[in-house]
C-alpha cells in the first residue's frame, strides 16, 4: 500500500531538508563522504535501505542491472548511472546532455510502450536487480505490484521533494559517490552566489521567461521552470509566482533588471523561446537593450547536476548587473 502522498509542499521541503541536513551532518567536510546509509563500497551480498514514497525498500548495495523509468530516467543519467533499461528521453533533450550520458542512454534498452506506459515483460526480460521509477500515483497504482514482482522498486511520486528523490535514486543505483560530489558543487555554488551577489539579489528585480516548444502560439510563462522553483526554495532569488503570459503583455517585463530565458546547454535559445526573442516588444525591453537578458539551461528534470548548470548560468547572468 503506498504511503499517503506528501501533498503540502512545505512538509515535503521540510522532510527533504531534514534528510539532507541529516546526511550533511554525518559528513565532516564538503568533500565526498559516506551518507547516512552503510558504506557504498559494500560487497554485493549486502543490502541498503532506501526511503521511497512506497515505504522503505531493501535494495542490493551494488546493483549491476538497473532500470530507470519515466521521470527518473533523466535524473538517473545525470548522476552517471548506466541503466540496462530506460524509458524515452526525446531527441531534443538528449542532444543537450553530455556525451557520456547520451551514450549511456543509447546503450540501454527502451522499455516504454507509448511513453507513459511501460512494457512490463520487456522490463522482466532484462532481469534487473532494482527498478527506479518516478511517475504519478495513478499510473504507479496500475503497475506497481507488477513491477515489484520483478525486482525491488524505488518509487517516487511527482510531489516528492527533488533532493529526497535524487537521494533515493542514488541509493538505489549505488551512485552515492557521484551524488555527493554533485551535492557539494551545488552547495558551493549556492553559497558563492548568495555571498558574491548579496546586494544585487536584494535590490535587483529578476524574472525568468520560459516557453515550451509545444506551447500555444503567442504565449509564454514567467518563473515556471523547475529550476526557478528550486532556486526560489533555496532562497537564492526571490522569484515571483509563476504565471502564464501573452506576447501582448511583454511590456510588463519592462520593470525587471535581469531577464533569464531558457536555452540549450550551449547557451543558444531553445526552439520554444525563440519566437519570444524575435518580437519587437522584446527587443525594446530595457533589460534586453542593456544586455541583461541571459540564457539559462534547465531541462525538465531535477538533479544536482542540472541545478548546478542552472546556477552557473545564473552566476554569469548576475555578473552582468552593475554592482551596487
Amino acid at each position: 500500500m503506498p504511503l499517503p502522498t506528501v501533498k503540502r509542499r512545505a512538509t515535503a521541503v521540510a522532510t527533504g531538508l531534514l534528510v539532507t541536513a541529516f546526511g550533511l551532518a554525518a559528513c565532516s567536510a564538503p568533500a565526498a563522504a559516506p551518507s547516512a546509509s552503510p558504506s557504498a563500497s559494500a560487497p554485493a551480498s549486502q543490502t541498503r535501505q532506501v526511503e521511497t514514497n512506497d515505504g522503505t525498500v531493501t535494495v542490493p548495495a551494488n546493483p549491476q542491472r538497473v532500470v530507470a523509468l519515466v521521470n527518473a530516467a533523466l535524473a538517473y543519467l545525470d548522476m552517471g548511472g548506466k541503466p540496462v533499461g530506460i524509458t524515452g528521453v526525446d531527441e531534443g533533450t538528449l542532444a543537450d546532455l553530455p556525451a557520456e550520458q547520451q551514450a549511456a542512454y543509447r546503450a540501454a534498452t527502451n522499455v516504454a510502450t507509448s511513453s507513459g506506459e511501460i512494457d512490463l515483460e520487456k522490463v522482466a526480460s532484462l532481469k534487473p536487480d532494482v527498478i527506479v521509477i518516478q511517475t504519478g500515483d495513478s499510473q504507479y497504482g496500475k503497475i506497481g505490484d507488477e513491477l515489484k514482482a520483478i525486482a525491488p522498486v524505488v518509487f517516487l511520486n511527482q510531489e516528492s521533494d527533488w533532493k529526497f528523490r535524487v537521494e533515493a535514486f542514488a541509493g538505489a543505483g549505488n551512485l552515492l559517490d557521484t551524488l555527493n560530489q554533485q551535492k557539494a558543487k551545488y552547495q558551493q555554488l549556492t553559497t558563492s552566489i548568495k555571498q558574491n551577489y548579496a546586494d544585487v539579489l536584494k535590490t535587483a528585480k529578476i524574472v525568468e521567461t520560459y516557453r515550451f516548444a509545444g506551447a500555444e502560439a503567442g504565449q509564454f510563462a514567467i518563473n515556471q521552470s523547475l529550476c526557478a522553483e528550486a532556486v526560489k526554495e533555496e532562497g537564492i532569488v526571490n522569484f515571483e509566482a509563476s504565471a502564464p503570459m501573452s506576447f501582448e503583455q511583454i511590456g510588463k517585463l519592462a520593470k525587471y533588471d535581469l531577464i533569464l530565458y531558457n536555452a540549450r546547454s550551449d547557451g543558444q535559445p531553445t526552439a520554444g523561446i525563440q519566437p519570444l526573442l524575435d518580437t519587437n516588444a522584446w527587443k525594446l525591453l530595457p533589460a534586453v537593450k542593456a544586455g541583461h537578458a541571459k540564457p539559462v539551461y534547465c531541462p525538465w528534470g531535477r538533479s544536482y547536476g542540472f541545478m548546478a548548470k542552472y546556477l552557473e548560468g545564473l552566476d554569469q547572468a548576475l555578473a552582468t548587473l552593475p554592482k551596487k
Binding site: 519515466v70 521521470n71 510502450t113 507509448s114 511513453s115 507513459g116 506506459e117 511501460i118 512494457d119 512490463l120 511517475t135 504519478g136 499510473q139 496500475k142 503497475i143 507488477e146 511527482q158 525538465w300
Partner: peptide, 16 residues
C-alpha cells in the same frame, strides 16, 4: 510526461 500518460489513458489501454 503527465500529458502523455493522460493521452495514453485517453486512447484506451489494457496495459497492466
Amino acid at each position: 510526461e503527465d500529458a502523455l500518460a493522460a493521452a495514453a489513458w485517453g486512447a484506451g489501454s489494457l496495459n497492466g
